Computed example of a mutant assay.
Amino acid sequence: MDPARIVVLAGGVGGAKFVRGLRALVRRTASPAAITVVANTGDDLWLAGLRVTPDLDSLMYALAGVNDDVRGWGRAGESERVSAELAAYGVGWPWFTLGDLDIGTHIARTALLREGLPLSAVVERLSARWPLGVRLLPATDAEVETHVVTAEGELHFEEWWVRTRAALPALGFVQRGVESATAAPGVREAIAAADVVLLAPSNPVVSIGTILGIPGIREALRDTAAPVVGLSPVIGGSVVRGMADACLTAIGVETDAAAIARHYGARSAGGLLDGWLVDETDAAAVDPLRAAGIAARAVPLWMTDDDATAAMADAALRLARR
């Protein structure tokens, strides 16, 4: 059975690369598959009076083909005159530079939010500008921001990630407002109707973990008839991108492909996963994971380009069909 409805839970830069490869696979095979991406919103913040949504924007820009591939985030061909002016006035975070085109997106988003539109409607309105080839949904319309508990106090995740480069040890993570949040319209319905659900190789703690923390989403994954397959963001004991190892250490999970799979847990034992892909480097983890109730397979997991990433996505769909 070729899946017609694919749902992906994803973070920002890594998630965007994976979804772009999945889209390339669908287009290459002339499949009628529809892709829905549920994006992490825990990195969102108010800055200089603007609502900034880093992961949603990384996904939108990458799928639109206007992202900066060199930096890995933001728009290509950016200038930063507005950020320089804000810094001169002492407004915002001088270490969190926004490009002028990017600021245009934030102004548009903030204006629509101020008009009373929920974030999900704003995302639909903004992403309609480009033929993304996917349906992009925020995990929630509520403001659920991830904060990091440190010995020096609580920091917004972006401050801990960008300003301190995760050098300040994290003692824990708090999603402010998560208790009263609900999944954005369409999220639970998409999961329930899916033929397959994929967990992108995104940060298991502050990207996928934050999505799973929204009331109702974890339950939707457990209840769906679709197989749930994840891809490891760790290869050979090292994170593929970013500083997810610092996040994993904070919650007591080893930076290891099999350890992350066990963190998610086998759906047959009350967890989330039916299947899990590890890199060929971590092939020794396959048999123990299978014994734990998670169908596992070792394949190349380096997202070097769209072709390599499409092959990863194909392997995930093949594992789901099994």
Score class of each variant (00 low, 15 high):
244 A>M: 15
54 P>G: 00
199 L>A: 03
271 G>M: 01
284 A>K: 00
29 T>Q: 03
185 P>D: 04
43 D>V: 07
319 L>D: 13
152 E>K: 09
32 P>W: 10
166 A>C: 15
84 A>F: 02
97 T>Q: 12
178 V>K: 01
280 E>S: 14
266 A>W: 15
303 M>K: 02
228 V>G: 10
62 A>D: 10
19 V>T: 10
226 A>H: 04
17 K>T: 14
68 D>G: 09
194 A>G: 01
191 I>C: 02
47 L>Q: 05
316 A>Q: 03
220 A>R: 02
182 T>F: 00
43 D>M: 09
135 R>Y: 05
168 L>G: 00
175 Q>Y: 13
252 G>Q: 09
153 G>E: 14
216 G>N: 10
2 D>T: 06
83 S>Y: 10
143 E>Y: 10
55 D>S: 01
29 T>E: 15
219 E>R: 01
231 L>M: 11
179 E>N: 02
255 T>N: 02
46 W>F: 05
210 T>G: 03
248 L>N: 07
34 A>I: 07
294 I>A: 01
310 A>S: 15
253 V>F: 03
314 D>H: 01
200 A>W: 10
81 R>Q: 14
258 A>H: 06
136 L>E: 00
248 L>P: 05
144 V>D: 13
281 T>L: 11
280 E>K: 02
161 W>D: 10
109 R>C: 08
39 A>E: 13
3 P>Y: 05
41 T>Q: 08
218 R>P: 07
